[in-house]
Design a binder for these strands. Structure first.
Lengths: 211, 211
DNA sequence: TGCAAAATTTCAATGCATGAAAATCATATA
DNA sequence: TATATGATTTTCATGCATTGAAATTTTGCA
């Protein structure tokens, strides 16, 4: 490939790319707002697309489904979690690593990379409220646990597959149910964190410690 | 209500009811067979309905959705699990009760109430293979855990809500991930049970016991 | 400016799901 | 046995998510 003398090196981010990011963001914001106002099922893709000034068909070149628009950054978060597993401190036990990752994950939950803090909180509310979104979240949570179990085995080769899977599943399962079961109560991010920490501690100590 | 002299007391099970059960069963069997042969997404409701000799619309007076036909008896299984919690043996600890329920649940997994054993195994394969069905299963699993956490609190009033939720979530989360993560391997019912038992044991002992 | 690639729009089709009205069927009873 | 009644099924019509393909527009760049 040759470059003309007038070519501007814009770091790979030309008008085309900027426009795509703007559209993507417009779709996410429109969707979150409409889902919040009218409910997930009552909002149509046509409405979302209209709000973002694109055709309905175009929506699907950005997201694979109506649910996906809410979880647009989850893949990146999963990678972060798996990476966090890799740089464990020396002497850190599997349980401690998992505890650390749970806490970091909760932080990310309220951290949108491109959106406002309000939208980040709105998303949590939506996922807890809308059955369709809850279902999608459960699928992704399971996927990320599978990934984490693999990462845990790599970090601790002495663990066998069942041990690694059981550890990850127990830790995230405990935290998930502790947070969800309390539902109905409006949960602030702090309350969520404190609940999660208690659930994690119980899992570390083992269920026999409850008797 | 009055009875004529020729009335037959059929125990509340007249032709109408028998016909409904037959149709229900025909729909479930047709659906399982077609899902297995062609895949879930490739099977249309029209095909299932045709196979069962009813109109497409009628399908929805038996099941709420295409996925639901696979889980038609799950509600009953959930009730069984919650009931199993209630009749705990004296001196049985929360952890032991959960272990017992996990084992019973695995038994029920391969027990269809109205269908053949082959269909019961077919269902497990389908749920593990088809993303749509996996998603549905996760939702129901979460629901049943919420129910179980409540039941656990009632059986052991000394537990607080977070402890009960964490215990149930940890136990089922560990077993679930241990079984699913090993996927790709064809799992016999026995292997599944043994994996589940190990995962449960780890959860009882606590993740600290892994370091 | 003008070409080529990328992105968007338009158009058509399929399949799930649901509501409402019309047609059938099972049941109890006169 | 004939029939009124209520339950069930079918028919018909509609909305919406999703997907493929062709036509059109936009952007990057020579």
């Amino acid at each position: 490939m040759q470059y003309s003398s007038v070519m501007v090196d814009n770091g790979g981010v030309g008008l085309r790319e900027r426009k795509k990011q703007r559209t993507r963001r417009a779709l996410v914001e429109a969707a979150l707002r409409l889902f919040d106002e009218k409910g997930f099922d009552e909002t149509t893709l046509a409405e979302i697309a209209a709000e973002a000034d694109v055709s309905t068909r175009t929506f699907f070149s950005y997201f694979a489904s109506k649910e996906d628009v809410v979880f647009y950054d989850s893949a990146r978060k999963m990678e972060l979690a798996a990476a966090a597993m890799a740089d464990r401190a020396p002497g850190e036990s599997p349980g401690d690593v998992l505890l650390r990752i749970v806490e970091e994950s909760l932080t990310w939950l309220t951290t949108y990379e491109e959106l406002t803090f309000e939208d980040a909180e709105l998303r949590i509310r939506l996922v807890l409220k809308e059955p369709t979104l809850r279902a999608r979240a459960l699928v992704m949570l399971l996927e990320s646990q599978t990934t984490l179990a693999r990462a845990l085995r790599e970090a601790y080769p002495e663990l066998d597959p069942v041990e690694a899977a059981a550890a990850v599943g127990a830790m995230f399962g405990a935290v998930k149910l502790a947070i969800v079961a309390d539902l109905g109560h409006d949960l602030s991010a702090e309350q969520m964190s404190s609940t999660a920490r208690r659930a994690a501690e119980i899992t570390l100590a083992g269920l026999r410690s409850l008797g």
